[in-house]
Amino acid sequence: MTSRRRGALRATAAVLVAAIVVGASGFLVYANVTSAAEREPLAEVADDPAISLDYSRDSVVMAPASDANGEGLVFIAGAKIEPVAYAYKLSGLVDAGYTVVIVRPFLNFGLFETRPLSAFTSLAPDVSDWFVGGHSLGGVKACMYADSPDVKGLVLFGSYCANNLSDSELTVVSLSGSADGLSTPAKIDANAKALPADTTFVEIEGANHAAFGDYGLQAGDGDSSIDDSDMRDIITDTITGALQ
Protein backbone atom coordinates (compact mmCIF):
# COMPACT_ATOMS: atom_id res chain seq x y z
CA MET A 1 0.00 0.00 0.00
CA THR A 2 1.40 3.35 -0.97
CA SER A 3 1.92 6.10 1.58
CA ARG A 4 -0.60 8.22 -0.31
CA ARG A 5 -3.28 5.51 0.01
CA ARG A 6 -2.49 4.99 3.69
CA GLY A 7 -2.86 8.71 4.25
CA ALA A 8 -6.23 8.73 2.48
CA LEU A 9 -7.47 5.82 4.59
CA ARG A 10 -6.36 7.53 7.79
CA ALA A 11 -8.12 10.71 6.73
CA THR A 12 -11.33 8.79 5.93
CA ALA A 13 -11.18 6.99 9.27
CA ALA A 14 -10.68 10.29 11.09
CA VAL A 15 -13.71 11.78 9.34
CA LEU A 16 -15.86 8.75 10.25
CA VAL A 17 -14.77 8.86 13.89
CA ALA A 18 -15.48 12.59 14.03
CA ALA A 19 -18.93 12.05 12.49
CA ILE A 20 -19.75 9.34 15.05
CA VAL A 21 -18.60 11.53 17.94
CA VAL A 22 -20.60 14.51 16.69
CA GLY A 23 -23.68 12.35 16.09
CA ALA A 24 -23.48 10.73 19.51
CA SER A 25 -22.94 14.07 21.21
CA GLY A 26 -25.89 15.55 19.37
CA PHE A 27 -28.15 12.68 20.41
CA LEU A 28 -27.07 12.97 24.05
CA VAL A 29 -27.93 16.66 24.01
CA TYR A 30 -31.30 15.90 22.36
CA ALA A 31 -32.12 13.09 24.79
CA ASN A 32 -31.41 15.23 27.83
CA VAL A 33 -33.56 18.18 26.76
CA THR A 34 -36.78 17.18 28.50
CA SER A 35 -40.29 18.53 29.01
CA ALA A 36 -40.37 19.95 32.52
CA ALA A 37 -43.18 19.35 34.98
CA GLU A 38 -45.67 22.14 35.55
CA ARG A 39 -45.32 23.57 39.05
CA GLU A 40 -48.89 23.91 40.27
CA PRO A 41 -49.93 20.24 39.96
CA LEU A 42 -46.71 19.13 41.65
CA ALA A 43 -47.21 21.66 44.45
CA GLU A 44 -50.69 20.25 45.06
CA VAL A 45 -49.21 16.79 45.56
CA ALA A 46 -46.43 18.13 47.80
CA ASP A 47 -49.00 19.91 49.97
CA ASP A 48 -51.21 16.82 50.37
CA PRO A 49 -50.75 15.54 53.96
CA ALA A 50 -52.02 12.10 52.92
CA ILE A 51 -49.05 11.62 50.57
CA SER A 52 -45.41 11.06 51.47
CA LEU A 53 -43.43 12.45 48.54
CA ASP A 54 -39.75 11.79 47.89
CA TYR A 55 -38.29 12.72 44.54
CA SER A 56 -34.97 13.20 42.82
CA ARG A 57 -33.94 13.79 39.23
CA ASP A 58 -34.37 10.12 38.34
CA SER A 59 -37.34 8.92 40.35
CA VAL A 60 -40.41 9.88 42.33
CA VAL A 61 -41.72 7.78 45.22
CA MET A 62 -45.23 8.60 46.44
CA ALA A 63 -46.52 6.57 49.38
CA PRO A 64 -49.64 6.82 51.52
CA ALA A 65 -48.93 8.60 54.79
CA SER A 66 -51.18 5.94 56.38
CA ASP A 67 -53.34 2.98 55.38
CA ALA A 68 -51.07 1.66 52.63
CA ASN A 69 -52.50 -1.49 51.03
CA GLY A 70 -49.15 -3.18 50.37
CA GLU A 71 -49.48 -2.82 46.60
CA GLY A 72 -47.45 -0.60 44.31
CA LEU A 73 -47.06 0.64 40.75
CA VAL A 74 -43.75 1.17 38.98
CA PHE A 75 -44.51 3.71 36.26
CA ILE A 76 -42.04 4.44 33.42
CA ALA A 77 -42.11 8.05 32.20
CA GLY A 78 -42.69 8.81 28.53
CA ALA A 79 -39.84 9.82 26.23
CA LYS A 80 -38.10 13.02 27.34
CA ILE A 81 -40.69 13.70 30.08
CA GLU A 82 -39.71 14.54 33.65
CA PRO A 83 -40.94 11.85 36.10
CA VAL A 84 -42.50 14.42 38.43
CA ALA A 85 -44.76 15.51 35.56
CA TYR A 86 -46.88 12.42 36.32
CA ALA A 87 -47.10 12.95 40.07
CA TYR A 88 -50.48 14.73 40.11
CA LYS A 89 -52.25 12.41 37.67
CA LEU A 90 -51.08 9.36 39.66
CA SER A 91 -51.62 10.85 43.10
CA GLY A 92 -55.19 9.58 43.33
CA LEU A 93 -53.80 6.04 43.43
CA VAL A 94 -51.76 6.99 46.49
CA ASP A 95 -54.88 8.35 48.17
CA ALA A 96 -56.41 4.93 47.48
CA GLY A 97 -53.56 3.15 49.31
CA TYR A 98 -51.12 2.35 46.51
CA THR A 99 -47.43 3.27 46.52
CA VAL A 100 -46.29 4.75 43.19
CA VAL A 101 -42.71 4.79 41.93
CA ILE A 102 -42.24 6.94 38.81
CA VAL A 103 -39.01 6.27 36.93
CA ARG A 104 -36.86 8.24 34.49
CA PRO A 105 -35.65 5.64 31.97
CA PHE A 106 -32.05 5.60 30.75
CA LEU A 107 -31.36 8.55 28.42
CA ASN A 108 -35.05 9.48 28.85
CA PHE A 109 -36.19 6.75 26.46
CA GLY A 110 -37.93 3.65 27.78
CA LEU A 111 -36.52 1.37 25.09
CA PHE A 112 -32.97 2.15 26.24
CA GLU A 113 -33.72 1.03 29.80
CA THR A 114 -31.90 -2.19 30.78
CA ARG A 115 -32.11 -2.13 34.58
CA PRO A 116 -34.11 -4.93 36.19
CA LEU A 117 -37.50 -4.10 37.72
CA SER A 118 -35.97 -4.76 41.15
CA ALA A 119 -33.92 -1.59 40.75
CA PHE A 120 -37.19 0.33 41.08
CA THR A 121 -39.20 -1.84 43.45
CA SER A 122 -36.31 -1.61 45.91
CA LEU A 123 -37.18 2.08 46.32
CA ALA A 124 -40.33 1.00 48.20
CA PRO A 125 -39.33 -2.12 50.18
CA ASP A 126 -42.59 -2.22 52.17
CA VAL A 127 -44.61 -3.07 49.06
CA SER A 128 -45.29 -6.77 48.53
CA ASP A 129 -47.29 -6.84 45.27
CA TRP A 130 -46.31 -4.89 42.18
CA PHE A 131 -47.94 -3.63 39.02
CA VAL A 132 -46.06 -1.93 36.19
CA GLY A 133 -47.13 0.83 33.86
CA GLY A 134 -46.01 3.65 31.67
CA HIS A 135 -46.90 6.44 29.31
CA SER A 136 -46.20 6.26 25.58
CA LEU A 137 -42.73 4.68 25.05
CA GLY A 138 -42.58 4.16 28.81
CA GLY A 139 -45.59 1.90 28.43
CA VAL A 140 -43.82 -0.13 25.75
CA LYS A 141 -41.04 -0.82 28.24
CA ALA A 142 -43.57 -1.57 30.99
CA CYS A 143 -45.02 -4.30 28.75
CA MET A 144 -41.60 -5.94 28.73
CA TYR A 145 -41.38 -5.80 32.53
CA ALA A 146 -44.90 -7.21 32.73
CA ASP A 147 -43.75 -10.46 31.13
CA SER A 148 -42.61 -11.69 34.54
CA PRO A 149 -44.24 -13.91 37.18
CA ASP A 150 -43.47 -11.25 39.82
CA VAL A 151 -45.81 -8.70 38.20
CA LYS A 152 -49.56 -8.74 38.90
CA GLY A 153 -50.77 -6.28 36.32
CA LEU A 154 -50.09 -3.65 33.68
CA VAL A 155 -51.29 -0.05 33.29
CA LEU A 156 -50.88 1.75 29.95
CA PHE A 157 -51.34 5.48 29.32
CA GLY A 158 -51.55 6.30 25.61
CA SER A 159 -49.45 3.26 24.80
CA TYR A 160 -49.44 -0.33 23.55
CA CYS A 161 -47.22 -3.41 23.70
CA ALA A 162 -44.57 -4.51 21.23
CA ASN A 163 -44.44 -7.95 22.90
CA ASN A 164 -47.37 -10.36 23.05
CA LEU A 165 -49.06 -10.65 26.45
CA SER A 166 -52.37 -12.02 25.16
CA ASP A 167 -51.96 -15.39 26.90
CA SER A 168 -50.95 -13.90 30.25
CA GLU A 169 -53.14 -13.78 33.36
CA LEU A 170 -52.25 -10.16 34.04
CA THR A 171 -54.80 -7.58 35.06
CA VAL A 172 -54.40 -4.95 32.34
CA VAL A 173 -55.76 -1.42 32.05
CA SER A 174 -55.28 0.53 28.81
CA LEU A 175 -56.24 4.21 28.90
CA SER A 176 -56.28 6.24 25.70
CA GLY A 177 -57.36 9.74 24.75
CA SER A 178 -59.90 10.60 22.07
CA ALA A 179 -57.78 13.64 21.07
CA ASP A 180 -54.41 11.87 21.23
CA GLY A 181 -52.49 12.80 18.09
CA LEU A 182 -49.57 10.43 18.80
CA SER A 183 -50.87 7.16 20.26
CA THR A 184 -54.16 7.59 18.45
CA PRO A 185 -57.26 5.52 19.32
CA ALA A 186 -56.77 3.73 15.98
CA LYS A 187 -53.24 2.67 16.96
CA ILE A 188 -54.43 1.49 20.37
CA ASP A 189 -57.17 -0.58 18.70
CA ALA A 190 -54.78 -2.02 16.12
CA ASN A 191 -52.45 -3.30 18.84
CA ALA A 192 -55.13 -4.51 21.29
CA LYS A 193 -54.58 -8.12 20.21
CA ALA A 194 -51.26 -8.15 22.10
CA LEU A 195 -53.15 -7.81 25.41
CA PRO A 196 -55.38 -10.30 27.28
CA ALA A 197 -58.99 -10.58 26.13
CA ASP A 198 -60.29 -9.26 29.45
CA THR A 199 -58.19 -6.06 29.32
CA THR A 200 -60.02 -2.95 30.53
CA PHE A 201 -59.93 -0.44 27.64
CA VAL A 202 -61.10 3.11 28.33
CA GLU A 203 -60.96 5.95 25.82
CA ILE A 204 -61.08 9.24 27.73
CA GLU A 205 -63.16 11.80 25.90
CA GLY A 206 -61.28 15.06 25.25
CA ALA A 207 -57.89 13.82 26.44
CA ASN A 208 -54.79 14.23 24.29
CA HIS A 209 -51.40 12.54 24.67
CA ALA A 210 -50.04 15.16 27.08
CA ALA A 211 -53.14 15.00 29.30
CA PHE A 212 -51.74 11.90 30.99
CA GLY A 213 -49.08 14.11 32.58
CA ASP A 214 -48.54 17.77 33.38
CA TYR A 215 -45.76 19.01 31.13
CA GLY A 216 -47.35 21.32 28.60
CA LEU A 217 -47.86 20.95 24.85
CA GLN A 218 -46.31 18.21 22.73
CA ALA A 219 -45.54 18.41 19.01
CA GLY A 220 -47.98 16.49 16.85
CA ASP A 221 -50.55 16.11 19.61
CA GLY A 222 -54.23 16.99 19.44
CA ASP A 223 -55.99 19.61 21.55
CA SER A 224 -57.13 18.56 25.01
CA SER A 225 -60.51 19.68 26.33
CA ILE A 226 -60.58 17.78 29.62
CA ASP A 227 -59.95 19.36 33.01
CA ASP A 228 -56.87 18.14 34.89
CA SER A 229 -58.84 17.14 37.98
CA ASP A 230 -61.36 15.22 35.87
CA MET A 231 -58.51 13.43 34.11
CA ARG A 232 -56.99 12.49 37.46
CA ASP A 233 -60.33 11.18 38.75
CA ILE A 234 -60.92 9.02 35.66
CA ILE A 235 -57.39 7.59 35.89
CA THR A 236 -57.85 6.84 39.58
CA ASP A 237 -61.32 5.33 39.34
CA THR A 238 -60.52 3.19 36.31
CA ILE A 239 -57.28 1.76 37.65
CA THR A 240 -58.46 1.12 41.20
CA GLY A 241 -61.66 -0.45 39.91
CA ALA A 242 -59.71 -2.87 37.72
CA LEU A 243 -56.92 -3.70 40.17
CA GLN A 244 -59.28 -4.35 43.04
Rank of each mutant, 00 (worst) to 15 (best):
G134L: 10
V151Q: 02
G138A: 10
A63M: 15
L170G: 01
L154F: 01
Y98S: 10
N69R: 14
Y145G: 11
T99R: 04
E113F: 02
F109T: 12
V172Q: 01
C143E: 13
M144C: 00
G70C: 13
A142M: 05
S148G: 01
M62L: 14
S168Q: 13
L165W: 04
S148T: 09
L107I: 08
A142K: 03
H135V: 11
P185V: 02
N69D: 11
A186Y: 01
L90M: 15
L111C: 00
Y145R: 07
P83A: 15
G181Y: 01
A146N: 06
V101W: 03
D150T: 13
S159D: 00
S148N: 15
A96D: 12
S91E: 07
M144P: 00
W130R: 10
K89T: 15
L123N: 08
I76P: 03
G72F: 04
L90F: 09
F120Y: 15
S176C: 12
D180T: 00
R115N: 08
A79K: 10
K152A: 12
E71M: 14
R104K: 12
S166F: 07
S91W: 04
W130P: 05
V151R: 01
S166V: 12
S148E: 12
P116V: 00
P83D: 14
S178A: 14
L165Y: 04
V132I: 09
K80Q: 15
F106W: 09
Y160W: 09
L182W: 02
F120E: 11
G158P: 10
A68I: 11
C143R: 01
R115T: 06
S91D: 07
G133S: 06
L137M: 14
Y86E: 14
G133V: 05
S174A: 15
F157I: 05
V94N: 08
T184R: 10
I102A: 05
V94I: 13
S176T: 14
G70S: 13
E169D: 15
L123W: 03
V155Y: 03
L117M: 10
A65R: 14
N164P: 07
L154W: 01
L93N: 04
S159G: 08
G138C: 09
F157A: 07
G181S: 05
S91L: 05
D180L: 04
S174P: 05
V173M: 03
V127L: 08
A179T: 00
F106N: 10
K89H: 12
G177R: 03
N108C: 08
K152F: 02
C143F: 04
S118W: 07
D180F: 01
R115Q: 10
N69H: 12
L154S: 02
G158C: 13
A142N: 04
I81K: 14
A146Q: 05
F120M: 09
L156H: 10
